[in-house]
Amino acid sequence: MADRAMIDVLKEKLGSIINDISQPRKRRIYLSVDRENVQEAARVIFYDLGGRLCTASGIDTMPGVEIIYHFFIEHPDYEKIMVNLKTLAPKPDLITKSVGAVFKAAEWIEREITEMFGVTFEGHPDPRKLLLADDWPEGLYPLRSDYPQKDVEGFEPQDVDEPHPDATHLL
């Protein structure tokens, strides 16, 4: 069992780049860094502190898309604790650095955040689509708060009523 609190370890290892750090309740730490430093912070938490990436969440807020990488520390030398690393991809360009370039576990979730919020992750090794259809219109991001609820212009679902010519004998 660890003799030092994780919050102190984080302050020591990442001291200069942390903007804000707090432990609101038992086994939960929230810290935020600038987008330029997110790769370094993720590298330290993943490789040095043995943090397993649970997932990342994107949230559309007023200043931009907030991205939270949720880690759970599983290193035998440290206490078991959840570390939430926050960063902001500011509007209007929504660009941040890719954590998927640091370790593979973050690749899929960053692809998903790109589709859902339109965030660009610089240096992502495989920036293809993951969940949405290939013919999904450009510039339409479902989890943004300004996503139109109906009648999306330029998006026509393919007509499925017309039978395929090869299948007409079935009718």
Binding site: R27, F72, E74, K80
Partner: peptide
């Protein structure tokens, strides 16, 4: 060696 029920 991990298990969310035990670790948290």
């Amino acid at each position: 060696d991990h298990d969310a029920r035990r670790d948290d």
